[in-house]
Computed example of a mutant assay.
Amino acid sequence: MIKKLAGLLLLLPVLAISSVAIASDQQSAAELRKLLDQTTTLKGEFVQTLFDGQGKVQEESSGDFVLKRPGKFYWNTRQPYEQLLVSDQESIWLYDPDLEQVTVRSAQDDLQQTPALLLSEDVNTLREHFAITQQAVDASREEFLLTPTRKDGLFQTLTLVFTGEAKARKLSEFHILDNLGQLTRFVFQKSVANETVSDSIFQFTPPDGVDVLYD
C-alpha cells in the first residue's frame, strides 16, 4: 500500500523560439507569468509515469484533474487505484478509499512540497521559492525548469512544458525529478482551458466512517 501512495505523496510533501535558448531568472519568470496568465482554469485527463534512475518504467497511473489559479486543484487518480487529492488553497486533502483514510494538511506553507499546487500558484510566489530558467525548444513548445532554493524538499527539479501556438499555449505536461533520481512525468490529455469551474469541486467532505488524520 505504501507503493501505491508514492505518486500522490510526491504531490503532497506536490499552470517560441526556434532554437534552444536559456534566459535569465527574471526574464524567465516574466515569460512564465505571461503563459500562466493566459490560463485561469485547466481541466482534462492525465497519465502519470514513474521512471527509475536508469529510465525504466516503474509504474503508471491515470485519472482526471481540474486546476484553478491561484492555488486550487482537484487530482483524481482512477487507475490502477482510486485516490483523490484536493486543495481549496487553504487545506489539502488526500483521500484513499481502499485505506478508508483521509489525510488533511495546511496548504499555506507547503509550496515546495506540493508540485500540483505549484501549477496553480502566482509566479511572484514561485520566484520566492524557486530559481526559474526558461528553455525554449521550438516555436510550438516552451519549457521552464524550476529548482527549489531549499534543499530539504522531496524533489530536485520541476519542469513545466507548454505547447500550442504562441498566443494560446497551455500547460501540457510536467516532470518531477526527486531526490532519489527518479523521474515522474505527468502528461495532460483532452485538456480544456478557461472554462468556468465551480469552487465546490475544490471542497472535500470525508465520507462517513473513514479515519481523518491531521498532518
Results as ranks from 00 to 15, higher is better:
38 Q>R: 14
205 T>C: 05
154 L>K: 09
88 D>P: 03
67 L>P: 04
9 L>S: 12
22 I>Y: 09
84 L>R: 09
27 Q>S: 15
101 Q>Y: 07
167 K>L: 12
118 L>T: 11
76 N>S: 14
139 A>Q: 14
99 L>H: 00
198 S>R: 08
111 L>Q: 08
75 W>H: 03
126 L>W: 04
91 S>Y: 09
116 A>K: 01
169 R>E: 05
145 L>A: 02
184 T>W: 00
34 K>D: 12
38 Q>N: 15
8 L>Y: 00
170 K>P: 03
134 Q>S: 11
210 V>N: 07
49 T>Q: 10
117 L>V: 06
81 Y>E: 08
87 S>H: 09
178 D>S: 06
47 V>D: 13
66 V>Q: 13
109 D>E: 15
24 S>E: 09
21 A>P: 00
18 S>A: 15
133 T>V: 11
64 D>L: 04
64 D>K: 10
110 D>F: 05
35 L>H: 05
196 T>Y: 11
92 I>E: 04
43 K>A: 08
178 D>V: 01
71 G>Q: 07
121 E>A: 14
152 D>L: 01
20 V>M: 13
102 V>T: 09
8 L>C: 04
31 E>V: 05
4 K>E: 13
195 E>H: 09
90 E>G: 09
53 G>Q: 05
70 P>S: 11
54 Q>T: 09
96 D>N: 13
176 I>W: 01
28 S>L: 03
196 T>F: 13
43 K>D: 09
166 A>N: 09
46 F>G: 06
112 Q>M: 07
95 Y>R: 04
36 L>M: 15
45 E>D: 15
78 R>H: 11
128 E>W: 00
146 L>T: 03
159 T>L: 05
164 G>Q: 07
208 D>V: 12
